[in-house]
Design a binder for these strands. Sequence first.
RNA 1: GGGCGUGUAGCAUAGCCUGGAUAAUGCACCGGCCUCCUAAGCCGGGGACCGCGGGUUCGAAUCCUGCCGCGCCCGCCA
Length: 589
Amino acid sequence: MVRIKELINQLKPIFSNAMNSLDVPESIWLPLLGKATVEDHGDVALPCHSLAGILKKAPQEIAKQISELVASDLQSIAIVSSMSGFVNITAKPEWLSNRICILLADPRLGVSVDQKKTFVVDYSAPNVAKEMHVGHLRSTVIGDTIVRMLEFKGHNVIRENHVGDWGTPFGMLIEHLLDLGEDRAADELGVGDLDSFYKQARSKFVSDEEFANRSRSRVVLLQGGDAETLRLWRILVNESMRYFNEVYSMLGVMLTDDDIRGESSYQELLPEVVDRLRESGDLEQSDGADVVFPGGWVNREGEPLPMIIRKADGGYNYSTSDLACIIDRVERLGCDGFLYVVGTPQKQHFEMVFQVAKKAGFMSHNHQAVHVNFGSVLDTDGKVLKSREGEVIKLHDLLEEAIWRAEQSIDDKNPDLLGKEREEVARAVGIGAVKYADLSTERTKDYVFDWEKMLSFEGNTAPYLQYAYARISSIFRKWGGDRQSLTTSFESLMDSEFSNLRDEEILLSRRLVEFPSILDDSVSTFSPHKLCKHLHSIASSFASFYENCGILKEDIEAVSQRRLALCEVTSRELKLGLEMMGINVPERM
RNA sequence: GGGCGUGUAGCAUAGCCUGGAUAAUGCACCGGCCUCCUAAGCCGGGGACCGCGGGUUCGAAUCCUGCCGCGCCCGCCA
């Protein structure tokens, strides 16, 4: 439940007086004061049913009594009424306009700056020589949005892209590269045909003993730091990165080569993890491997589940690099929080890693380690979409298709858009739709990959929000006035009559005023969908306002100015909100 | 077997942590609206025993519990 902070803050002292006179302690009534569950009933409500036992009166009576007690003090802020045991508080147009005024004057649109912390956000993480699939899309898009939100809230954010560039598969990949010839292999990877490259290597590894043996020896050479092997490995990494960067650039995410922290870069830190765990007394031996028992988990046989730190063959494990990362982040980067934008299937893994890291003293309770998990992408038959089998949907193709469809839409709906502008709008609309489709659902749930839905431009989609923005831009172009001046002209309207306000203006205002509270909630829970939902409600009430209230064609100058000010705030909130998701807002579409 | 998660109109989702009023939104469906600031839109309408059964409560989609369906994890892979 999100409350409008500013309104609650003003209501609190007034209710405090009333409740004191009834002898109801703050600890009881304050938590009850929340957002009205039915928008028509008001902005804030206080259900009184639970007070019946204390006050020995019917809830309806209590609500009535409280509303009478607060009525006079609330006069300048809100209208209060009681109904079936609820005290309902509806902010007055004067109060709403006051807030709108503050938003207009504030470049941050009323969003506060938090006490600065340093966050590491770990996201995207594609694998070298493997196609990026829809799962990477989720991680990349959600991670990027969280980064932008945290930065806007004033935090220092370090992006980390843990590219899978190390491990046993690289033996076979390098051997396959040699078989193909370096040039041809580079070509294949460069055009983004990663999946077939990987599959070819894989199938040879399974079917061809000689190839498999070469691959195994190649792994040893790689881990031993053999110069020629490293050079070949570098080709694989570079060509893949070139392709990933192309996808990133299409998507419009912030990741660059500077953010890459390949798994290979943690190799030197791994022995230290073992040493430290030995020192802290957590390390145990099991069948020749170094392990830690986090406790609380059992395997299929009911035995305690170990976390393997170093395998019997001396190799390290995934958990080991995650622990190394934590040490690096705490000691070198000095960060306060680390977020892992990784799928839900790895939930248990992260719980174990965090527990071990705390126990061994790699991080303290002051550190906030969060697995920002997201659900699996399912196929239409309800099965997990796998890149290994069947038709893989290449991210690159999906994005191109999205842009192409947007172009068709533009040609259909606005044939006047031509050339470069047409291209840019198509990009913003197409890519925006794909990103928004992913961001607008609650991230922890599995979702069915629906090509059509992802490319839809109707309903609760990015294009709907962009359309609202473009309409407002169009109004301002036509108006031709100075948008900055709206702030002062709106202030001067504050003393005038509010009786001619239409319902659509009031509803839009209420939603615009909620924006800072919603954004805060969205950031603190790492849930972009909450912001999406609110942006849609803003755009939707704007559309209704736009259809029903004349803006430039309104005869009364003061009313026209007031409506232009609402357009201004709407436009800026939509723009800021979409910018948080890295979605562009065209001036025309 | 153990653990985690999930089930809301035909479909897709929000609400669940922190219980409150007539369960919200989009698609699809039905009926209206472009000589008028962009119809990617607006206005109106139908459609849900919130998986099923118990419990707690003045009050349960929300909390507890037992079933049922589905998914995932339990690798010396990452």
